[in-house]
Each structure stands twice: as structure tokens, then as C-alpha cells.
């Protein structure tokens, strides 16, 4: 302050003329919303790991007929309850040996299995290959999840949009229905449906469909209600755009985050219900495998043959954890404020 710095004189030339065009320039390139979402999602390590795990599981499930080493339902009574064995690699716990009366015995030799026969995850009480059953079981669980999600999207989303968009009496009426349906505990409805219908995949999906769409409809309605009042939608309406076009052009893209996030919670819920119903014996009927039936079978024998329980338990838990975490990751990616502040 006291000392005036010495500066070369030519530095004191005014540099701006009248044109200040570049003053309005924004420094960083702008990303579209979806690009931004993707960037945030892929920067989230946990979400990426979960996404990869789920992708692998989905690919294996889709390619089940190619990948599964055995027919999942083929029984071979002589090969029953064999422990896991991975080729001739002598990995403890994966070498075909079993504790029998305090001694480790080669269960394969005892069962008279031909040389070179091995079951990576062992066999169950009917001699069926557990790995193949788990692959097919996972496939079935995922089919349930996908169908339940589709129902959510096909019923819940349009229901929510119509209710929120129309408002007034239509909305009141539609919300009454939602209220009543949601006040009946969904477990009760699902179990009743399962008792009335023949146990099986279709019944599970129908049972889940009856109650599942409500949450989605509620969320979509609330969001639509808000969006309806947004200026750009008002503008589109004022300009006389047909409702269908507004719905597809403006509403659906803006609802997408809500819908995607809710979907990520529908999936584990559907998988849980399938496993639950199968576990108590009213889900997928024998001999088909699902994660629930495998768990139920495993639980019956777990004291002596714990491996039969472990594998399906781990796969089921991984799918549940990964979908939940991916759901979290997606929510953070769509709505950064939810995590940053």
C-alpha cells in the first residue's frame, strides 16, 4: 500500500473494447443431464461394482442352458448329497471330501462315481447338480423380478400420470382406490392369491402385480402433480400440444429418475417375495428350482450338509445387496443433493 509497485508502462493499456462478447462465455463445457447422471454413477465405485456383479448374474442367468453343466432337474440317486468338488484341484472344502464320523472320506469314491466326475457346488438329496440348479433358480428369480417390474411400469406409471395429470375428481377417486389397496397388507394379499391360484411363476407374478403397482403409482402421481405446474409444461399446454405428446415429450423424461429409482426397489422386493413364498412352500412347485426352494431344501439338511444352504443364501444375498446399493447409487446420481449436502 505504502509502496507503489513498479510496473512496465505498456501493461496499463485498456484491453477491452466495446465488444464484450466473450464475457458471457461459460468456462466449462456443459453436460446434458443424462451425461451428468452417467458420469456421477460411474464415478461411484460401489455402484459400478454392483452394476458389474448384477450384469454378470444376468448374463449367466440368460445363458443358463449354455452355461449350466448339468440338467438342473435330472436326478441321479446314487450321486446324492455329494460335497463340492472342483476338478482334481485339491482345495479344502472343494475336494469332494466329507466329514463322516470324525474322518474325512472321499464321498465321490464312496458313491462310486466314475473318475473325473465332479460337481462344483455338490449335489442335493436327489443327486441333482446344485450349481445348475442355482443358475436356473437365479434365472427364475430374475424372471419374477423382471415381470414384476414390467407390471409396475405398465400399471403403476400410467395410473400415476393419469391421476396426477387429471387432478380433481378423477384424482380423488383414483387415490381412494390406491388408499384401500395399500391399506391391505400386501403379504396377506400375496399369500391369499397364492393359496387360491395354482402355485407357480404366473401366480407369483399376478400376486405381486395386485399390490406392487401402488407405490409406483403414488410416486409418479406426486411427481406429475409437481411437473404439471412447471412453466415449460404450462407453456406446452398453452401452445395447444396434445396431452399424449406432452406426456411422452415432457413428462416421461422428467419422471424417469423417479421411475428408475423405484424400479431398483421393486426388483429386490419381488425376488424376496418369490424366495419367501417358495421357502414356506407355496411358491415355485417342485421339481423346478428357485432361490427360495433351494434355500428351503438347504435349510432342511443344513446341519450335516451346510454347503447346500450356503450357495443359494450367498447368491440371494448378493442380488439383494447389489440391487439395493445400485438403487442408492442411482438415486445419488439422479439427485446429487441427496448425498452431497
Amino acid at each position: 500500500m505504502e509502496q507503489i509497485p513498479q510496473i512496465p508502462k505498456d501493461k496499463f493499456k485498456l484491453i477491452h473494447d466495446e465488444n464484450n462478447a466473450d464475457q458471457e462465455k461459460i468456462g466449462t463445457p456443459s453436460l446434458t443431464y443424462m451425461q451428468d447422471v452417467r458420469r456421477r454413477l460411474f464415478n461411484n465405485k460401489v455402484a459400478v461394482v454392483c452394476l458389474s456383479l448384477l450384469s454378470i448374474i444376468v448374463v449367466v442367468a440368460v445363458l443358463a442352458p449354455v452355461i449350466a453343466p448339468h440338467n438342473p432337474n435330472a436326478q441321479q440317486v446314487t450321486m446324492s448329497n455329494l460335497p463340492p468338488k472342483l476338478g482334481n484341484l485339491n482345495i479344502p472344502g472343494m475336494n469332494g471330501y466329507q466329514n463322516m464320523g470324525g474322518k474325512m472320506v472321499d464321498a465321490y469314491k464312496q458313491a462310486g462315481a466314475p473318475d473325473g466326475t465332479f460337481y462344483i457346488l455338490g449335489t442335493d438329496y436327489l443327486g441333482r447338480d446344485l450349481l445348475s440348479r442355482i443358475i436356473y433358480g437365479t434365472r427364475l428369480s430374475l424372471v419374477v423380478a423382471v415381470l414384476a417390474t414390467l407390471v409396475d411400469l405398465l400399471i403403476g406409471v400410467p395410473y400415476g400420470i393419469v391421476s396426477g395429470w387429471k387432478g380433481g375428481k378423477t384424482d380423488t377417486f383414483m387415490q381412494r382406490i390406491v388408499e384401500i389397496v395399500s391399506s391391505i397388507p400386501n403379504l396377506i394379499v400375496v399369500i391369499l392369491m397364492m393359496i387360491v391360484l395354482k402355485p407357480g411363476l404366473t401366480s407369483i407374478v399376478i400376486a405381486l402385480a395386485i399390490t406392487g403397482w401402488v407405490t409406483m403409482a403414488r410416486l409418479v402421481r406426486a411427481q406429475t402433480f409437481q411437473l404439471k405446474e412447471q412453466e415449460y409444461i404450462l407453456a406446452a399446454r398453452t401452445l395447444g400440444e396434445p396431452s399424449m405428446k406432452i406426456a411422452t415429450k415432457h413428462l416421461i423424461p422428467n419422471l424417469s429418475s423417479t421411475i428408475i429409482i423405484q424400479t431398483m426397489f421393486t426388483i429386490p422386493n419381488a425376488i424376496f417375495f418369490e424366495a419367501f413364498l417358495s421357502f414356506i412352500g407355496i411358491g415355485i412347485p417342485a421339481p423346478n428350482a428357485s432361490l427360495g426352494t433351494l434355500l428351503s431344501d438347504g435349510q432342511k439338511a443344513f446341519r450335516f450338509l451346510p454347503y447346500q444352504m450356503w450357495a443359494p443364501a450367498i447368491i440371494l444375498s448378493i442380488i439383494m445387496i447389489a440391487t439395493n446399493l445400485l438403487g442408492d447409487g442411482l438415486r445419488d446420481a439422479f439427485d446429487p443433493q441427496s448425498s452431497e449436502n
Partner: peptide
């Protein structure tokens, strides 16, 4: 996340074991 992902019956069997 473990608590809300692992179904109670899986947990029950593991605890029991």
C-alpha cells in the same frame, strides 16, 4: 444395507447354524 438386504429367513438359518 446387509440388514435390509439379507432376508430374515436366510439370517435365521445362518444364526441357527
Amino acid at each position: 444395507i446387509l440388514g435390509l438386504s439379507i432376508p430374515s429367513f436366510v439370517l435365521a438359518v445362518l444364526l441357527q447354524f
